[in-house]
Design a protein around this nucleic acid. Structure first.
Lengths: 136, 136
DNA sequence: ATACAAATTTGAAATCATTACAAAATTACA
DNA sequence: TGTAATTTTGTAATGATTTCAAATTTGTAT
């Protein structure tokens, strides 16, 4: 059980009620949620919460490197509080997003290729997941 | 100079005027264009062209594996007619997208990791490009 | 505590990429 | 040549995201 406020501060983010709720949500829901999912799930416990706050907050988290932003789903942006080395797989049949373990050695090899200052390295797969493959 | 009609047919796509124009545009403009850029550039020579046709066509090309769809820019989808192995780098300062050469050995290592049927493997970097780094 | 400035949150309205859809045009082929 | 299938088109709808200014909350000096 991590101290969310400290976690935010360690990334240079001043903790507010909303920011803590959003970060805590991301850390306890490794489901790559969209803004709307976060909003609907938090609303019951924070009735005045605004979607704009979620957009603002997630953008702040991204700038500060406290979360990862996933562009794998071209309908809507997804967010991931898990900063550990891993990739993502999108199943085009069922829409599910899977975490994919990447050996650190492979990841580092990939990360170091560009002759530019890299902030984020995203490895995205898409196709048909094993479950859907079994059905169809 | 490739025969565009044959190229489309080889992917199981029936060549029409519009489809050929769009594929020819993608192959001669390795600039990861958006739908709007393609539309505005083709409009003068095809005044009845519709944006919807471009959306339909690019989706068809994607299904048939004739192009790559880039989700690196979270504002809008970008398209790439270059199917060769390479990754992309988005500069968050100037917005430019660079092609990044990936050794085939590294790419294959990455591609084979997931325990699912992979159709597309996308490696996206973002950060500050060398040019922008020099300025600021 | 009090007051003031700075930071944060909020909600309504605007924007803009994408999709839905049905009519019109074109093409394939019997 | 006629008819069905395919493709294209334009308009309207959708839906995620952004803008923006007002309201609220927080930090800090007095």
């Amino acid at each position: 059980m991590v101290d969310i406020a400290l976690h935010l501060r360690s990334h240079g983010i001043r903790p507010s009620i909303q920011r803590m709720a959003i970060m805590e949500y991301l850390m306890s829901h490794p489901t790559h949620p969209t803004v709307d999912v976060i909003y609907c799930d938090l609303l019951p416990s924070m009735p005045t919460l605004s979607r704009t706050t979620i957009y603002n907050t997630l953008e702040l988290f991204r700038e500060k490197g406290a979360i990862r932003v996933l562009n794998i789903d071209n309908k809507t942006t997804r967010y991931d509080g898990d900063l550990s080395i891993h990739a993502h797989f999108l199943c085009r049949k069922c829409g599910k997003i899977y975490d994919i373990d990447i050996p650190e050695s492979v990841y580092m090899k990939v990360k170091l290729i560009p002759k530019h200052h890299v902030d984020q390295t995203e490895i995205n797969y898409s196709g048909t997941c094993s479950e859907c493959e079994a059905f169809f």
